[in-house]
Design a protein around this nucleic acid. Structure first.
Lengths: 224, 224
DNA sequence: ATGTCGGCATGAAGATCCTCATTATAGAAG
DNA sequence: CTTCTATAATGAGGATCTTCATGCCGACAT
């Protein structure tokens, strides 16, 4: 899952990134509105953390721009001020949640996963597809009650498949989802093969069926 | 572990429950004395958080009732007033600890686990695990009758390990136990390494076996 | 002064990830 | 049907990143 952190306080950002990395999120940082705009244009994030006070403008202004493009989904406002005005304004502009500085990282984490759950999995905490069970808050996958030991990429990949089940996803979109950095072009998509192979192996070795079908020349489809 | 929260401020309760849930406590809420009485009668909680100001009476009155039934064990008083009277009164009535609003959730957590820890060991004064002997009231540790010279943190750490023996404890939970927990966020968990290293050294140098095993990426486990 | 504590630097150990070379397969073309 | 080419699967190994161990030192309190 990819998160954009729009925040200029370096120290805070450092802590957030470290913590969220341990929670298996891929983070990108935009220290100002300008960078944020550029990144949001070129990529779709699962969750956006938006600080209100930024060096080159107000975060709520940025949020307002996003609203026009219907891109406010998944935005969590972060503000140092405990101002009711900011809160209401932010939520009115379509933000999903609101966090007041200083906050606990565990609370941040809880809100992020809540937002993502709401967006992608209609609020469900547990997702079941035949023999497959995914515990979203716990980030654990089971097959027939048996816990799978997946790496971060494998988990991300599986989640990406599940949230696009029965649809063909291109290798490029998979690559974008899995890669941490925001490269536009991938000179080499081979690393996908490895992750798909490993995921398939772990799924089948645990007794599951192989739902990941390759669609020649198109990409892959998770059939269920 | 089950916790009863006797508190009428909904917003606060919501935050406490959410936080304590992430700490894998099970929470029940009583918004007034009446509900609290009923719940305490029908169930035994590992810890009770008791607000002093409640809509239908004073929390200390409730505590007094509990004292008559010897049920004050594990009670943490919560008060908005920083009143010495309340504090002394509460502790006199048998409360285990006292917390002044507003407080950090991490501090609340630390105190709850402290109370639970205290209660867990309350029956025994001496705890023996193979060559290891812990004199709980005296806070002294022996290996083969040989007294270990542990610092406070080292002792706390050992106790935490012992009370979670054969279970993996995360570094985060260790950090929360060891710290006075005024910190919002642990930007650095390295101090744990030092204490673990020193504890291990003291244990082995005294002739004990090294029971503290690291579980890569998970934390540590005290095997016995 | 002394002991305790926590941060930092370094290096080892471990896990993860990606590249690459090779083999297998699908679809197109002859 | 056979051949050819593009695409996909697989296995091995090294690069990279994370986590952990250890020693050292300054800060702080007793």
């Amino acid at each position: 899952m990819k998160i954009l952190i729009i925040e200029d306080q370096q120290e805070l950002v450092k802590n957030m990134v470290r913590y969220l990395n341990t929670e298996s999120y891929l983070c990108e940082v935009a220290p100002d509105c300008e960078t944020a705009r550029r990144k949001i244009e070129s990529f779709e994030y699962d969750c956006i953390l938006l600080d209100v006070t930024l060096p080159d403008g107000n975060g709520l202004t940025l949020l307002n721009e996003l609203k026009k493009d219907n891109k406010t989904d998944g935005v969590i406002i972060i503000s140092a001020k405990n101002s009711i005005y900011d809160r209401i304004e932010g939520l009115n502009l379509g933000a999903d949640d609101y966090l007041v500085k200083p906050f606990h990282l565990s609370e941040l984490n809880a809100r992020i996963s809540a937002v993502i759950r709401r967006r992608k999995f209609s609020g469900q905490k547990l997702m079941t597809l035949n023999e497959l069970t995914i515990d979203l808050p716990g980030k654990v996958v089971f097959i027939y009650k048996k816990k799978l030991d997946l790496t971060r990429k494998e988990y991300d990949l599986l989640l990406f498949f599940v949230s696009n089940k029965n649809k063909v996803v291109s290798k490029n979109s998979i690559a974008e989802h899995l890669s941490g950095s925001d490269m536009d072009v991938f000179d080499n998509l081979d690393f996908i093969y490895t992750h798909i192979k490993n995921l398939k192996r772990k799924l089948t070795q645990a007794g599951g069926s192989d739902n990941i079908k390759s669609v020649y020349g198109m990409g892959y489809k998770f059939e269920v």
